[in-house]
C-alpha cells in the first residue's frame, strides 16, 4: 500500500542513486544478520526510495521552525555549578535535517531537550514558529510537545508491557491527525512484528519501533538523542536510513544528536558543540549517502 501510494505521488521526482547502494549494502548485511525479514523490508522500502525526491517547496525550505537565541543553561547541584549551555544560538529550518555533534558533556542533549520543551533555559529565548517557548510553563510545554514534537531516545524507552503496535498507539491515542500505528510501523519496516513485545525485539527493531512511535503523530519536529548510541554499526545504519527516509519523505524537520562525527555528512546542517558552545557550523550542499559513512 505504501509502495503504491508513493508511486502515485508525483511531487517526489528525482532519483538518488546512492539509495540503491544503501539498499545493496543492507542486503549484504542481511545475509549475515539474524533479522532477515526486517532487513529485507528496509531494503525494499529503501530501494523504492529511489523513485522519490525530497520535498522542496521553495518558501517552506527557508522557514525557521525552531530557533534558540542566546540560550544559556546553568545546573546547580549542591555547591557545583555547571554551565551546560553558554549563549547558544541556533536555527532549525523547515524540512531540514540537523546533525548535532559533540563529545559527551558538550551540552548537545541539553540543547535538544530545550528545543523539545523537555527542559527550560536559564536565560535566552527559544521560539517555535515565532512563538516563545521559554515563557511557557510546564503545562504549556506539555501541550507544545503533545502537538508538535516527536522524540527518539538512545535507549528506545519503549513501554515493556506494550506491544510494538501498542507502543505506537500510546502516542497516536493523544495525537490530532496521526497515521495509524500499522502505517507507522510499516514505514520503519516492522509491519511483520506488530504484536511483539519489546523483550521479543532486537535493539535495532526496538529503536525502529521508537522511531515509528515518534513519527506516527506526524510531528512538526523530530528530535533524536543518540539514536544509534546503543546499537552496533550495521544496525545503527539501518536506523539512520529510516530516519533519513522519514525526513525526506515526510519533510519532518529533524535534529539528530550524535557523538559520531561520521554521521555528520547525513545532515543538511552540521553543528559541533563543545563545552556548552557551538564551535562549528557547516552546511552540506549534498547530503552524504549511508554507504559513504563508516565507523
Amino acid at each position: 500500500m505504501l509502495l503504491r501510494d508513493r508511486r502515485n505521488d508525483m511531487t517526489w521526482k528525482a532519483a538518488y542513486a546512492h539509495h540503491t547502494a544503501a539498499g545493496m549494502l543492507l542486503a549484504i548485511a542481511a545475509a549475515s544478520n539474524a533479522n532477515k525479514s526486517a532487513i529485507r523490508d528496509i531494503y525494499m522500502t529503501a530501494a523504492t526510495g529511489d523513485t522519490r525526491q525530497r520535498p522542496e517547496p521553495a518558501d517552506a525550505r527557508h522557514e525557521v521552525v525552531l530557533s534558540a537565541t542566546g540560550v544559556s543553561k546553568i545546573y546547580r547541584t549542591g555547591e557545583v555549578t555547571v554551565h551546560a549551555l553558554k549563549d547558544v544560538s541556533l536555527e532549525l529550518y523547515a524540512g531540514e535535517l540537523l546533525v548535532l555533534l559533540g563529545a559527551s558533556g558538550s551540552g548537545k542533549s541539553t540543547l535538544l531537550n530545550i528545543l523539545g520543551g523537555l527542559d527550560v533555559v536559564s536565560s535566552g529565548q527559544v521560539q517555535y514558529r515565532g512563538k516563545r517557548l521559554d515563557t511557557l510553563d510546564s503545562d504549556g510545554l506539555t501541550e507544545y510537545r503533545r502537538e508538535h514534537v516527536g522524540f527518539v531516545f538512545q535507549f528506545y524507552n519503549l513501554i515493556p508491557s506494550l506491544t510494538a503496535r501498542e507502543n505506537v498507539a500510546l502516542v497516536t491515542d493523544i495525537a490530532v491527525r496521526p497515521m495509524s500505528p500499522h502505517e507507522a510501523l510499516e514505514l520503519v519496516g516492522l509491519k511483520e512484528r506488530l504484536d511483539h513485545f519489546p523483550a521479543q525485539l532486537s535493539g535495532g527493531e526496538q529503536q525502529r519501533v521508537a522511531i515509528a512511535r515518534a513519527v506516527a503523530k506526524r510531528p512538526d519536529v523530530l528530535l533524536c538523542d543518540e539514536p544509534t548510541g546503543a546499537l552496533d554499526a550495521e544496525t545503527g545504519k539501518l536506523v539512520l536510513s529510516v530516519l533519513d527516509r522519514v525526513n525526506r519523505e515526510t519533510g519532518t524537520t529533524t535534529a539528530i544528536i550524535t557523538h559520531n562525527a561520521a554521521i555528520g555528512g547525513l545532515g543538511d546542517t552540521v553543528v559541533r558543540m563543545s563545552s556548552g558552545e557551538i564551535v562549528e557550523r557547516r552546511t552540506n550542499d549534498v547530503r552524504a549517502s549511508l554507504d559513504d559513512i563508516t565507523w
Binding site: T142, E143, R146, V149, I174
Partner: peptide
C-alpha cells in the same frame, strides 16, 4: 522513570 519520561516527552499531561 524512563517510561514516565517518555509519556511526558510525547506530551502526556501530568494529570494523565
Amino acid at each position: 522513570r524512563g517510561e514516565i519520561a517518555v509519556l511526558k516527552a510525547f506530551g502526556y499531561r501530568d494529570r494523565e
